[in-house]
Amino acid sequence: NTCEECGKPIGCDCKDLSYKDRHWHEACFHCSQCRNSLVDKPFAAKEDQLLCTDCYSNEY
Rank of each mutant, 00 (worst) to 15 (best):
N1Y: 09
N1M: 08
N1E: 04
N1K: 07
N1W: 05
N1I: 10
N1V: 13
T2H: 14
T2D: 04
T2A: 02
T2F: 07
T2M: 13
T2Q: 13
C3N: 01
C3A: 00
C3T: 00
C3K: 01
E4G: 06
E4A: 13
E4I: 08
E4S: 05
E4W: 11
E4F: 12
E5T: 10
E5Q: 10
E5N: 09
E5D: 14
E5S: 08
C6A: 01
C6G: 02
C6D: 01
C6M: 00
G7D: 03
G7P: 00
G7C: 11
G7F: 13
K8V: 05
K8H: 11
K8W: 05
P9S: 04
P9Q: 06
P9C: 00
P9M: 04
P9L: 03
I10C: 07
I10M: 03
G11R: 05
G11L: 04
G11S: 05
G11D: 08
G11N: 05
G11A: 02
C12T: 12
D13P: 06
D13F: 05
D13S: 05
C14A: 15
C14P: 12
C14Q: 09
K15H: 12
K15Q: 10
K15T: 10
D16S: 09
D16K: 11
D16A: 05
L17D: 02
L17Q: 13
L17T: 12
L17M: 15
L17P: 06
S18C: 11
S18A: 09
S18T: 12
S18Q: 11
S18K: 04
Y19L: 13
Y19G: 02
Y19T: 06
Y19F: 09
Y19I: 11
K20S: 07
D21L: 04
D21A: 09
D21T: 05
D21E: 13
R22Q: 14
R22I: 04
H23V: 05
H23M: 02
H23F: 06
H23A: 04
H23R: 06
H23K: 07
W24Q: 04
W24S: 05
W24F: 07
W24H: 01
W24K: 03
W24L: 03
W24Y: 14
H25N: 13
E26M: 08
E26L: 02
E26G: 09
E26K: 13
A27L: 11
A27P: 13
A27T: 07
A27C: 10
A27M: 11
C28Q: 02
C28V: 01
C28D: 04
F29E: 02
F29Q: 06
F29M: 06
F29H: 03
F29W: 09
F29K: 03
H30W: 11
H30V: 12
H30K: 13
H30M: 15
H30N: 11
H30C: 09
C31V: 02
C31G: 01
C31I: 02
C31H: 00
S32V: 13
S32Y: 07
S32H: 12
S32R: 05
S32E: 13
Q33N: 10
Q33A: 11
Q33V: 13
Q33W: 02
Q33G: 14
Q33T: 11
C34H: 00
C34R: 01
C34F: 01
C34S: 01
C34N: 00
R35M: 07
R35G: 13
R35A: 08
R35L: 09
R35I: 08
N36G: 12
N36V: 11
N36Y: 06
N36E: 12
N36F: 08
N36R: 11
S37F: 04
S37C: 06
S37N: 07
S37V: 07
S37Q: 11
L38S: 04
L38G: 02
V39Y: 06
V39K: 15
V39G: 12
V39I: 12
V39W: 02
V39R: 13
D40L: 05
D40H: 09
D40F: 03
D40P: 04
D40T: 09
K41D: 08
K41I: 10
K41Y: 03
K41G: 08
K41A: 12
K41R: 12
P42E: 15
P42A: 15
P42K: 14
P42L: 05
P42W: 11
P42S: 14
F43L: 15
F43C: 14
F43S: 12
F43I: 15
F43V: 15
A44Y: 03
A44V: 06
A44G: 14
A44C: 06
A44D: 15
A44N: 10
A45Q: 13
A45H: 15
A45P: 13
A45N: 07
A45G: 15
K46L: 09
K46F: 04
K46G: 09
K46I: 11
K46S: 11
K46R: 13
K46T: 08
K46Q: 14
E47F: 06
E47P: 07
E47K: 07
E47Y: 09
D48T: 09
D48C: 07
D48Y: 07
Q49K: 15
Q49N: 12
Q49F: 08
Q49A: 10
Q49P: 07
Q49L: 12
Q49E: 11
Q49R: 09
L50V: 08
L50G: 02
L50Q: 06
L50N: 02
L50F: 01
L50R: 02
L51N: 06
L51T: 07
L51H: 11
L51S: 05
L51E: 05
T53R: 12
T53E: 14
T53S: 11
T53W: 01
T53L: 02
T53D: 09
D54W: 05
D54M: 08
D54F: 04
D54C: 11
D54S: 10
C55N: 04
C55H: 05
C55I: 02
C55F: 01
C55W: 00
C55G: 03
C55V: 03
C55A: 04
Y56L: 11
Y56P: 13
Y56F: 07
S57G: 15
S57V: 07
S57T: 10
S57D: 13
S57P: 15
N58W: 03
N58I: 06
N58A: 15
N58K: 10
N58H: 06
N58S: 13
N58T: 14
E59Y: 00
E59C: 15
E59W: 08
E59P: 10
E59M: 09
E59Q: 11
E59G: 14
E59N: 11
Y60W: 10
Y60N: 14
Y60S: 15
